[in-house]
Amino acid sequence: MRRPTLIALLALLALGSGTAQASADKVTLSAKTTTCTTGADDASRAAAFTGAMPAATQTKRMQMRFVLIQRLGVGPKGTFKKIAVPGWGGWEKSDPRRQAFVFTKRVEALTAPAGYRAVITFRWLDAKGHVQRTTVRTTPICEQPDPRPDLVLDGAAATSVSKTTAAYDVSIGNEGHGDAPPFAVTITVDGTVSDPVTLGPIPAGGRVTGLLAAPKCTPGSTITITLDVANTVAESVEGDDAVQRPCPLA
């Protein structure tokens, strides 16, 4: 099957909005993933991370610094690494003498499959600009699943047509996150491969059925059903398209 190169992390946007209107007793120190949207195309994949901090005694100004980290592939394996994002990395500052500081940063056009977190550094400054305290929190992960389709064989039945041939009824599903274009299916019985039959397209989460004419299998033997014979579908899982099943004839 075709396996395309993963989309690069492109067009990352950093959109910040700070507020200091909440009172300190309603704001606790936190680092949260406030938005995590997924989709089949990069334009639909985004995440927003929010830091919140209350003022300490004699704090004049509060600051936050956001760093985006990325883990490529399907979690939980893999190592998170820092990703450079325009508009990230600098210190975001509250207005002076505020009781609390909340700030959100957003990234778009995320690569998939991957996981994303923000590492937020919090800093409290006194009236002379001296650092009173510094602490770091990491947000929960925004998981971006593989956007490609994944063809799976749901079932196979057969009806005898003659002494030598049978009609095989196959059900094929798409368990991936993207739509699957039309694809060809064959059945191999005792080394003889049937003519291919084109099925699909299948939307994500959908299923199709089809009939294939092939030699009659012997009860107790094994047949092989091959999905996407011509390798036209780029799938998230590529190694499960040749499926062996017991002969469905009684």
Rank of each mutant, 00 (worst) to 15 (best):
T37G: 08
R97P: 05
R133C: 06
S30K: 09
E175A: 12
E235P: 00
D42F: 12
A213D: 13
K163I: 07
K105H: 14
Q63S: 11
A11R: 15
S236R: 10
E175I: 13
S171T: 13
P113S: 11
D240Y: 08
L249Q: 04
G78M: 03
K60L: 14
D41R: 13
R117F: 04
A100Q: 02
T232G: 12
R148Y: 06
I172Y: 00
A250T: 15
M62I: 07
R3E: 13
G90F: 04
Q99V: 05
A157Q: 15
D146L: 06
L12M: 12
L249K: 02
S23K: 13
D25V: 09
G90M: 02
V193N: 08
V107H: 05
V161D: 09
S94M: 03
Q63T: 10
V67M: 04
S221H: 12
R106Y: 13
C142G: 09
T135F: 15
R45A: 08
P149W: 02
D241Y: 00
P181W: 08
A114M: 00
A100V: 05
D179H: 01
P145A: 12
S160A: 15
A167M: 03
T19L: 09
R98Q: 15
L249S: 03
V119Q: 12
T139Q: 06
G89P: 04
A184D: 13
P4R: 10
V208S: 00
A24K: 06
G200V: 03
C217F: 03
V107D: 02
K32F: 08
R117N: 02
L12F: 09
P181G: 10
V208T: 02
W91K: 13
V107K: 02
A250C: 10
G16H: 12
S194P: 01
T192Q: 13
T38A: 13
L227F: 05
I83K: 07
S236P: 08
K163C: 10
I141Q: 06
L12Y: 07
Q58C: 10
V170M: 00
V27F: 11
A31M: 05
V102I: 15
N174D: 03
G210Y: 01
C217G: 05
R133E: 14
T19R: 11
G51N: 01
L125Y: 04
T79E: 12
R245K: 12
V161A: 12
A46S: 10
R137C: 07
E238G: 13
T139N: 03
V67D: 07
A167V: 04
A114F: 00
S162Y: 08
A234D: 11
T35A: 14
F122D: 02
V237I: 14
M64N: 07
T35D: 15
G73E: 06
V233S: 01
A180E: 01
L151A: 07
A48C: 08
V243C: 05
L9M: 12
R133N: 12
Y116F: 05
S221W: 07
T188K: 05
I187C: 11
R3V: 14
P248D: 08
T121K: 09
G90N: 04
P201V: 01
P219K: 07
G200H: 03
P140S: 14
G200Q: 04
T165G: 04
A52E: 09
T222C: 04
P4L: 08
T192W: 06
R148C: 05
R2P: 15
A114V: 01
